[in-house]
Design a protein around this nucleic acid. Structure first.
Lengths: 308, 308
DNA sequence: TAGCCTCATAACATGAAGATATATTATTCG
DNA sequence: CGAATAATATATCTTCATGTTATGAGGCTA
């Protein structure tokens, strides 16, 4: 026999309230409505739920058992409402975000850590992707947002780009690197050292090539290539190698004394770090929160970089 | 925001079934009905519950969370249905039964123990009462049945009496009592011993008085009075006292070697043990089960008594 | 791109649940 | 014991979600 869960809810409310009238009030319904619902349930069940001819309504044993189930239903309903609330407020949910390995590991991961402290019920699904892959995933709704260095104007109109940091690369080395002792330095000084090349399909790789061309160099000694940021840092720390890294990453790492940077001017790469979203899809609240949080943090970071 | 628990049930069914059509089938509803219910819920919630334009319906994260609550509701509903079933079948519930202390402790408690082995979900509320009190409680529906020795015809018409045992009292003593050695015995032999008197308001007390009168005796040495069966038994075992007890009780106790009985004829007390119910109230299934169980057992017991 | 399969919509019927007004009944209190 | 009070049940009407069948639309697979 199938019972209407709403009837069980009503039963629970009445039993808990200790009376039909109060129970009805608690449910925001009229007393007759509740009375009839119970009559219905009683008929369906085929058993007395309240002792007849008793004016302070006295529940039957079966009634009490059923009310216990009704209470579970009420609780589940309340939990469901709460769930909806938190999801709608953006305090729960999953944000799918992707970006270049260097940025994600060097800058964004720290921001994510801060974000999660504030919003423990929002889950961040982070993955790595370069621009083409990221746009494809955004288009297919496999991604909520991408954080990438992008050349403004190079983006199809279906995507929106919100710049959060001006692009700027620097040459990085280990903290006690010999070059850090030099008072003055020219681009020529760096070509004698082994280099760590970013992944060949990354924008940084193109930036490195541009840098080399600007100092009239075609080839460099490449000692290591293809790794993640932490691999790069390990190699950097254990050798005299140099590499090119976004300034923002270097700033973050310098605070932890993990790298040093060389005071060599590198031309503006023409790319700027920003958040990309798919215009045709509206972000859900959790993603909106994350997006603005990242924006704020990175802007704060860039202010402190400017004041360095 | 208040959600309809039935919608959550439907959601759970759909998610579990992996599709709207199958979910509808599982719920025994038509597919369009379910479809619209979900549309309703979606509108109420104000969030997508399934990813749009995906034909094997793919649940949203929020949807999965809500479905989990819906599953709880489904479970509670099923539990409620099961409860009703067991109550209606008489496999659960409470039977309120009262009787004289001596019968309840001496005979019925053993039957209750057997009954509970068979019907673990039926609770027995046992209390002690003599006839007047028991009838009053039956009338006020504070009792489902009473088990009492009653003089047939002495019962108001509003009660039904179902005899389960012919009344018959015997004189009881401890197992090694001196009188048990006598080959022959007359009523006169018993008057030298101290007696344990049943409670003054009990039928047994009247039976004892009748016995005394039948042997021309007005007074007895009363050594102990007023206790429960176990108190009587303890005094009996620790002294040479005699007492009067229903034959059925003595038979039960003799099997455990706790008492002996004396072969002295006692006149029929005119009362017979039976179950009393209130005609104006119908017994619930659990009480019916208990009543017939007790009837069967006691009848079985009386058969084995007859063959002694 | 054709065809299948799943889901959404339309149109209509039904009936449960809501409200207000009112009757009925238990309990309490003088 | 009877009247007052409070609580529950009933009556009647309205509304609207749910159910139905028939049918249209659109993703998915080959």
């Amino acid at each position: 026999m199938r019972l209407d869960p709403r009837h069980l809810e009503i039963l629970a409310a009445i039993v808990d309230a200790g009376g039909l009238t109060e129970g009805a009030a608690k449910l925001g319904k009229s007393q007759p409505s509740v009375s009839r619902s119970i009559a219905f349930l009683e008929e369906r069940v085929g058993q007395q739920l309240f002792e007849p001819r008793r004016r302070p309504l006295r529940p039957t044993e079966l009634c009490l058992s059923l009310a216990a189930e009704g209470r579970k239903i009420l609780d589940a309903g309340r939990a469901a409402s709460a769930l909806v609330q938190t999801f709608k407020s953006g305090e729960a949910g999953t944000v799918r975000v992707a970006g270049t390995p260097i940025f994600m590991d060097g800058v964004i991961s720290g921001v994510i850590a801060e974000f999660q402290a504030d919003h423990p019920n929002i889950r961040i699904d982070q993955s790595y992707a370069y621009i083409d892959e990221a746009l494809e995933k955004l288009k297919q709704d496999q991604l909520d947002l991408a954080i990438l260095p992008v050349r403004p104007g190079a983006l199809p109109a279906e995507f929106e780009f919100r710049q959060i940091l001006k692009g700027c690369n620097v040459i990085a080395c280990r903290v006690d690197h010999p070059l850090t002792q030099h008072a003055e330095m020219t681009a020529r000084d760096v070509i004698d050292y082994a280099w760590i090349a970013p992944p060949a399909n990354s924008p940084l790789f193109q930036d490195m090539r541009a840098l080399l061309e600007s100092i009239g160099q075609r080839e460099l000694k490449i000692g290591f290539t293809g790794g993640s940021l932490s691999a790069v840092l390990n190699v950097l720390a254990g050798s005299d190698s140099l590499t090119i890294l976004p300034y923002s990453v270097v700033v973050t790492l310098q605070r932890r004394n993990q790298v040093a940077s060389l005071p060599i001017e590198i031309g503006d790469p023409g790319r700027h770090l920003g958040i990309i979203i798919n215009r045709s899809r509206s972000l859900h609240q959790a993603a909106i929160r994350f997006e603005s949080f990242v924006g704020e943090r990175i802007k704060g970071m860039s202010r402190s970089m400017a004041s360095d």
